[in-house]
Amino acid sequence: MEIGVPKETKDQEYRVGLSPSSVRALTERGHHLFIETNAGTGAGFSNEDYRQAGASLVSTGAAWSQPLVVKVKEPLLPEYEYLQKGQLLFTYLHLAADRRLTEQLLNCGVTAIAYETVELPDKRLPLLAPMSIIAGRLAVQFGAHYLERQQGGRGVLLGGIPGVAPGKVVILGGGIVGTEAARIAIGMGAQVTILDISIDRLSYLESIFGSRVELLYSSPAHIEAAVPTADLLVGAVLVLASKAPVLVSRNLVQTMRPGSVIIDIAVDQGGCIETIRPTSHSHPTYVESGIVHCGVPNMPGAVPWTATQALNNSTLPYVLKLANFGMAALDKDSDLAKGLNVQNNRLIHPAVQQVFPDLVD
């Protein structure tokens, strides 16, 4: 099969859909790879790396014109013109937060499989997990930076020092993002609280963190008590293919101390904090009600060398199936089939259908 890999166009998005190692694995199986020139340079992969792996270096249009297109992020408005009927697109989509893209995919007739909705029988999301790990770890790394006074923060050192209390990190959601955020915050010496609605998950977190983390059931009362005390508030809520619920109201944000920091990883699904809005790596923060907000939806793009390889470790087996069997791969792999969001001008994924019922046939 002919496979195209365009260069990402989102602000400072340096990840690339396929690494040279993945390209080699595909070309050795007889597939033809068309990589947009300089698509991987931001992640540390040169054009020569791709040539040696067996790929052809091509223009933007040529990369997009292939029957299978593999990306990292959702197509942006300038890329809509490249979407073609019958084309198979494999990438992150997060359609619940993007009606315009959803409508475009429906209108153009592309078949779109979203990384974030490929689902294993035990409900794990194998293609979302590696980026969730990175985003969770970066959330605290970023948050510690934005707490610095020169960045508009309170001037709090998360780890504190002997004689001075550490900073407090409150994490909404104890899934992969929340767990990894807690792991880094604990390593920095911060005081950490995690809130989650699953008692089973809280029990699991106790088994790995013990008494180093305060674990609370995510009730409105507990959220209202925890948020005002946070130096760093991390939104880490995930609802599969749906908008994240708003757990922290604007009024509650206003009870936080000036210079505190909010980082909402759920921003690509609408966000779980009312005052959050998408930002970018070029302009990552804004201040509202005296609180520093960070809503970068492609946070792992800050570490593209690590993130590209981590993503490819998970996506390559599915790319190989799509390359080998085309759409028949969905019949052979029920996990991959759950990733199908749009096909033949129809909205397929049940959770996305619930978000946009008026777009369902």
Results as ranks from 00 to 15, higher is better:
Phe142Asn: 14
Gly143Ala: 10
Ala144Gln: 09
His145Cys: 11
His145Ala: 14
His145Ile: 11
His145Asn: 14
Tyr146Lys: 00
Leu147Asp: 03
Glu148Tyr: 08
Arg149Tyr: 09
Gln150Ile: 09
Gln151Asp: 01
Gln151Thr: 02
Gln151Asn: 10
Gly152Arg: 11
Gly153Tyr: 11
Gly153Thr: 07
Gly153Gln: 06
Gly153Arg: 07
Gly155Lys: 05
Gly155Phe: 02
Gly155Leu: 06
Val156Gln: 06
Leu157Cys: 12
Leu157Arg: 10
Leu157Met: 15
Leu158Ala: 02
Leu158Asn: 02
Leu158Thr: 02
Gly159Arg: 08
Gly159Phe: 03
Gly159His: 04
Gly159Asn: 08
Gly160Arg: 12
Gly163Cys: 12
Val164Cys: 09
Ala165Trp: 10
Ala165His: 12
Pro166Asn: 13
Pro166Glu: 10
Gly167Met: 07
Gly167Ala: 11
Lys168Thr: 14
Lys168Ala: 11
Lys168Ser: 08
Lys168Asp: 10
Val170Gln: 02
Ile171His: 02
Ile171Phe: 01
Leu172Ser: 10
Leu172Asn: 09
Leu172Ile: 11
Gly173Val: 00
Gly173Tyr: 00
Gly173Trp: 01
Gly173Ile: 00
Gly173Asn: 00
Gly174Ile: 01
Gly174Asn: 05
Gly175Thr: 04
Gly175Gln: 04
Gly175Tyr: 08
Ile176Leu: 08
Val177Asn: 06
Val177Leu: 08
Gly178Met: 03
Thr179Tyr: 14
Glu180Leu: 08
Ala181Cys: 00
Ala181Glu: 01
Ala181Asp: 00
Ala182His: 07
Ile184Asn: 01
Ile184Tyr: 12
Ala185Trp: 13
Ile186Met: 04
Gly187Asp: 06
Gly187Cys: 08
Gly187Val: 09
Met188Asp: 12
Met188Val: 14
Ala190Ser: 11
Ala190Gln: 07
Ala190Gly: 09
Ala190His: 07
Gln191Gly: 05
Val192Ser: 04
Thr193Trp: 13
Thr193Val: 15
Ile194Trp: 07
Ile194Phe: 07
Leu195Lys: 09
Asp196Cys: 12
Ile197Val: 15
Ile197Gln: 07
Ile197Pro: 00
Ser198Gln: 13
Ile199Val: 15
Ile199His: 13
Asp200Ser: 14
Asp200Ala: 15
Leu202Thr: 03
Leu202Asp: 04
Tyr204Leu: 13
Leu205Asn: 03
Glu206Pro: 07
Ser207Ile: 11
Ile208Val: 15
Phe209Val: 03
Phe209Asp: 00
Phe209Lys: 05
Gly210Ala: 12
Gly210Ile: 13
Ser211Leu: 13
Arg212Gln: 11
Val213Lys: 01
Val213Leu: 02
Glu214Thr: 15
Leu215Asn: 03
Leu215Arg: 07
Tyr217Cys: 03
Tyr217Ala: 06
Ser219Ala: 13
Ser219Met: 11
Pro220Asp: 02
His222Met: 13
Ile223His: 04
Ala226His: 00
Ala226Gly: 02
Ala226Trp: 00
Val227Thr: 08
Val227Tyr: 07
Val227Trp: 07
Pro228Asp: 10
Thr229Met: 11
Ala230Arg: 04
Ala230Asp: 06
Asp231Cys: 03
Leu232His: 01
Leu232Ser: 01
Leu233Thr: 04
Val234Ser: 06
Val234Thr: 07
Val234Trp: 04
Val234Leu: 09
Val234Asn: 07
Val234Ile: 15
Gly235Asn: 04
Gly235Trp: 01
Ala236Asn: 05
Ala236Thr: 08
Val237Trp: 05
Val237Gly: 01
